[in-house]
């Protein structure tokens, strides 16, 4: 982990409110692993004051670039959306504990909304390792659904799901995934990221499914490096309930260890 001033190579609005940011910083491009995040100083003023965490959505070690995907939802992401090519962005990273892939195929990625970001990185990395990968990607409607096939090499089987049916399968992500299981999909391992209520449903349903499931959690953060304990979440381990830090032990946790 280092503090660096990454060069903004490209900022692209891929659909209203959604941005794809390419940062050049060879160290980060080499070091970042799927599931880890960067902690960005979005403002040099006092508001917003704290850094903002963003999961790494991909890397290109050859080009020395790191990719981030974000949705413009507030003061921090407003500022990010105004970055210009050639700007420098103060980054701490890569931070956090990455996903662990245990080797069972197919790997199934379950993404809700902008939670797709770390799963794009994971999917691409598993695909490059010759693994079979499915992505179930759900959002409210077509406007909130990104054309993620653009960011993945051919080979990942993408299942789009929207609640209003405007793109892909109609319904909610857990039900769509259930239908795929009913049709005979037999996952090796599951990886999920998205809003906490969605992750809680997936964790509960997985009580029936019984697959290894890792989730990437989000929590308000101050230091990002494990010092302040501000981002702690309740975790159950060896029969004991303890607080673990999203920024350090997380953001990736085994779903059965999270107290939902």
């Amino acid at each position: 982990m280092k503090q660096c001033r990454a060069l903004v190579r490209k900022l692209e609005e891929i659909s209203p409110y959604f941005y794809y940011l390419t940062l050049e910083e060879p160290y980060l491009a080499q070091a970042a692993q799927p599931g880890q995040f960067l902690y960005l100083r979005v403002s040099t003023g006092l508001s917003p004051l704290l850094r903002r965490p963003f999961s790494v959505a991909g890397t290109s070690p050859a080009a020395g670039t790191v990719l981030l995907l974000f949705r413009r939802v507030g003061a921090g992401t407003d500022l990010l959306s105004c970055l210009q090519e050639g700007d420098r962005l103060d980054c701490l990273g890569p931070l956090g504990t990455p996903f662990t892939y245990y080797g069972s195929e197919p790997a199934v990625l379950l993404a809700g909304g902008v939670g797709v970001a770390p799963l794009l990185f994971l999917g691409e990395s598993l695909l490059n390792g010759g693994k079979s990968v499915h992505l179930f990607y759900g959002a409210a409607d077509a406007t909130a659904l990104l054309p993620v096939e653009r960011f993945l090499s051919p080979g990942v089987l993408i299942h789009y799901i929207t609640e209003d049916g405007s793109v892909g399968e109609q319904g909610k992500l857990p039900q769509a995934f259930q239908r795929a299981l009913d049709r005979g999909l037999s996952p090796g391992e599951l990886f999920a990221c998205g809003p906490r209520p969605l992750l809680a449903v997936l964790a509960r349903e997985n009580g029936q499914w019984g697959y290894p499931l890792q989730v990437s959690l989000e929590e308000n953060m101050a230091c990002g490096v494990g010092a302040c304990q501000g981002c702690s979440v309740l975790i159950q381990k060896d029969g004991e309930t303890v607080y673990e830090r999203v920024c350090r032990e997380g953001p990736v946790f085994h779903s059965k260890e999270v107290v939902w």
Binding site: S47, E219, N220, A222, C228, Q229, S232, V233, L234
Partner: peptide, 23 residues
């Protein structure tokens, strides 16, 4: 001490509010 239940912090104008609970 295990500390307080989350959320433990929130950003405020030019500051932050925390309730870590002396974990």
């Amino acid at each position: 001490r295990s500390g307080n239940p989350p959320p433990r912090l929130v950003e405020t104008p030019a500051g932050m509010l925390n309730a870590i609970g002396l974990q």
